[in-house]
Measured scan of single mutants.
Amino acid sequence: MDVFMKGLSKAKEGVVAAAEKTKQGVAEAAGKTKEGVLYVGSKTKEGVVHGVATVAEKTKEQVTNVGGAVVTGVTAVAQKTVEGAGSIAAATGFVKKDQLGKNEEGAPQEGILEDMPVDPDNEAYEMPSEEGYQDYEPEA
């Protein structure tokens, strides 16, 4: 019985440690998101679009440190934060509304985080759909 109880105690310690790591990862992701939003706020009209992409990228980098179902929630929060940063930029006159959601080359930025393969159960990952990809044929 002692062996059984000791095993359960060790398992509990492992769960607590994993929860603490997840909590730490979420806190880091939130900190990076805040950094990115402050970065966007300090940019001029020309830099705002690039700044919004930076927020998304920093958040995406930190999301990889967070495991399990938390990833889905962090990704949703990050996307809403990026959308909010863009709205703030438009409201303050840093950028025109028609410039939001495009990178410096004018290509749409939507789907940055949505296409990231995420499995809350950590069982399997699927690649994003290939609808947006084109076949590449090298020139002879």
Rank of each mutant, 00 (worst) to 15 (best):
100 L>T: 07
113 L>Y: 12
36 G>R: 13
38 L>N: 04
73 G>A: 15
23 K>W: 14
121 D>A: 10
115 D>Q: 09
35 E>C: 14
84 G>R: 13
75 T>F: 14
49 V>T: 09
56 A>F: 07
118 V>Q: 02
102 K>V: 13
73 G>I: 07
113 L>V: 15
6 K>C: 03
90 A>V: 10
128 P>K: 05
44 T>G: 04
41 G>V: 12
29 A>G: 02
12 K>L: 12
87 S>Y: 14
15 V>H: 01
90 A>L: 13
4 F>M: 03
71 V>G: 02
12 K>Y: 15
49 V>L: 08
67 G>N: 04
67 G>I: 10
54 T>P: 01
67 G>L: 11
99 Q>S: 13
137 E>Q: 06
29 A>K: 03
130 E>I: 06
50 H>N: 07
96 K>Q: 05
78 A>M: 13
115 D>K: 10
88 I>P: 03
139 E>A: 09
77 V>L: 12
43 K>R: 14
79 Q>T: 04
103 N>G: 05
38 L>R: 09
94 F>K: 05
8 L>P: 00
81 T>K: 02
15 V>W: 08
136 Y>C: 06
92 T>N: 08
60 K>V: 11
112 I>M: 05
50 H>C: 08
88 I>A: 03
87 S>E: 12
61 E>N: 09
19 A>T: 02
78 A>K: 06
93 G>Y: 07
1 M>R: 00
108 P>I: 04
2 D>K: 02
33 T>S: 06
23 K>H: 07
28 E>W: 04
106 G>T: 12
86 G>C: 13
138 P>C: 09
36 G>K: 15
49 V>P: 02
126 E>R: 08
92 T>W: 14
31 G>W: 14
76 A>N: 11
95 V>W: 12
17 A>T: 11
2 D>N: 15
28 E>H: 04
49 V>E: 03
71 V>H: 03
131 E>Q: 07
66 V>K: 02
62 Q>A: 09
97 K>C: 10
49 V>D: 01
60 K>P: 01
105 E>H: 01
109 Q>K: 14
48 V>L: 11
80 K>S: 09
6 K>N: 09
26 V>C: 12
33 T>Q: 00
132 G>Y: 10
132 G>D: 09
98 D>W: 11
58 K>V: 10
124 A>L: 04
43 K>V: 14
82 V>P: 02
134 Q>E: 05
120 P>E: 06
123 E>L: 08
99 Q>W: 13
14 G>D: 02
6 K>L: 05
16 V>H: 06
96 K>L: 09
3 V>I: 03
65 N>I: 14
85 A>N: 03
61 E>A: 07
130 E>R: 04
61 E>D: 06
117 P>V: 12
82 V>E: 02
103 N>I: 04
70 V>M: 04
78 A>C: 10
83 E>M: 10
41 G>A: 11
56 A>I: 15
133 Y>H: 11
96 K>I: 03
138 P>W: 11
16 V>S: 09
126 E>I: 12
9 S>I: 14
21 K>I: 08
47 G>P: 01
43 K>C: 12
77 V>E: 02
65 N>K: 08
132 G>T: 13
56 A>T: 09
8 L>I: 05
120 P>S: 09
35 E>M: 13
3 V>P: 00
95 V>M: 03
114 E>L: 11
21 K>W: 08
66 V>E: 01
32 K>L: 13
83 E>A: 12
103 N>K: 09
137 E>G: 06
25 G>M: 10
45 K>L: 10
108 P>F: 08
120 P>R: 12
30 A>Q: 01
48 V>E: 00
107 A>E: 03
72 T>N: 11
35 E>W: 11
109 Q>I: 13
50 H>D: 07
118 V>T: 03
58 K>S: 06
93 G>N: 05
128 P>C: 04
83 E>S: 04
95 V>G: 12
82 V>T: 05
112 I>W: 06
123 E>I: 08
70 V>G: 01
1 M>Y: 00
61 E>M: 06
73 G>F: 06
7 G>V: 13
128 P>M: 12
116 M>G: 03
63 V>Q: 01
58 K>E: 01
76 A>G: 05
124 A>I: 02
134 Q>I: 09
97 K>M: 06
68 G>L: 08
81 T>Y: 14
107 A>P: 07
115 D>I: 04
75 T>C: 11
81 T>D: 01
54 T>E: 02
93 G>R: 05
125 Y>L: 08
61 E>R: 06
41 G>T: 09
86 G>A: 08
64 T>I: 14
87 S>G: 13
75 T>H: 13
40 V>K: 01
72 T>E: 14
88 I>W: 14
122 N>Q: 08
89 A>V: 14
61 E>H: 04
76 A>L: 13
81 T>S: 08
103 N>W: 13
122 N>M: 10
136 Y>R: 03
14 G>F: 15
31 G>I: 04
91 A>V: 09
138 P>I: 04
62 Q>N: 09
121 D>P: 08
97 K>A: 11
131 E>W: 03
90 A>Q: 11
125 Y>F: 15
92 T>R: 08
117 P>C: 09
69 A>Q: 09
35 E>V: 08
42 S>E: 08
112 I>V: 13
107 A>T: 11
125 Y>C: 06
16 V>Y: 13
6 K>A: 07
15 V>T: 01
71 V>I: 15
119 D>E: 11
129 S>G: 09
24 Q>G: 03
25 G>H: 15
109 Q>S: 12
54 T>C: 13
128 P>D: 11
65 N>M: 07
62 Q>H: 07
60 K>D: 01
24 Q>A: 13
56 A>S: 08
107 A>N: 09
131 E>H: 09
38 L>V: 08
80 K>R: 10
1 M>E: 00
94 F>G: 04
84 G>A: 14
113 L>W: 07
117 P>G: 11
11 A>I: 15
52 V>A: 09
46 E>N: 11
34 K>W: 15
78 A>V: 12
112 I>Y: 05
62 Q>K: 13
1 M>K: 00
35 E>G: 05
90 A>C: 13
85 A>K: 02
46 E>F: 14
126 E>G: 12
27 A>G: 05
106 G>F: 12
86 G>L: 13
79 Q>Y: 11
119 D>H: 10
48 V>C: 06
109 Q>R: 08
136 Y>W: 13
15 V>C: 04
47 G>T: 15
30 A>L: 14
